[in-house]
């Protein structure tokens, strides 16, 4: 049987990521995930949406698929932007950001990886899909 799936299409407008977190909260509640797990999913989702909004360099919408498995929630955040090379993304360290001109931003991927149980990136010049899994 196909796993139940919720699909969202979000326009690239300010704070649309909060619609995704509200959906994630409802699904997490349905799956009986803890409040801590639900918070981690929301935070990772916010960062994935912001990355898609800001870095995809596209005006197209982004798509989010929530797949409800027996023992996990799978979330795919899909954009149709120009893609990125993950190997070129530096791991941020606050020590390097304080007291110099280095930009303070750039924490999204680190947060996503720290908060989710599994994260995979597929990126081409036609778009990026981030697949994040939170286990029960």
């Amino acid at each position: 049987m196909k796993s139940p799936t919720v699909e969202l299409k979000l326009p690239i407008l300010p704070n649309m990521e909060l619609i995704a977190t509200q959906t994630a909260d409802i699904i997490a509640n349905h799956m009986h995930l803890s409040e801590e797990q639900s918070g981690e999913i929301s935070m990772a989702l916010i960062e994935a949406c912001i990355n898609a909004f800001e870095h995809s360099k596209t005006e197209n919408s982004i798509y989010i698929h929530f797949i409800v498995e027996e023992n996990s929630m799978i979330i795919k955040v899909i954009d149709q932007g120009i893609g990125f090379d993950k190997s070129k993304v530096e791991i941020p360290k606050i020590e390097n950001k304080i007291g110099n001109d280095e930009r303070k931003r750039g924490w999204g991927l680190q947060l996503i990886q720290a908060l989710m149980d599994s994260v995979e990136f597929e990126s081409t010049n036609a778009g990026t899909t981030i697949t994040m899994i939170k286990n029960k």
Binding site: M43, E47, K104, W107
Partner: peptide, 19 residues
């Protein structure tokens, strides 16, 4: 109850100014 890394990054600028 909700933050994003861009908002929190601006707090890093506050820390820097306070230092």
């Amino acid at each position: 109850k909700v933050v994003n890394s861009i908002g929190v990054s601006i707090l890093i600028e506050v820390i820097e100014k306070l230092q």
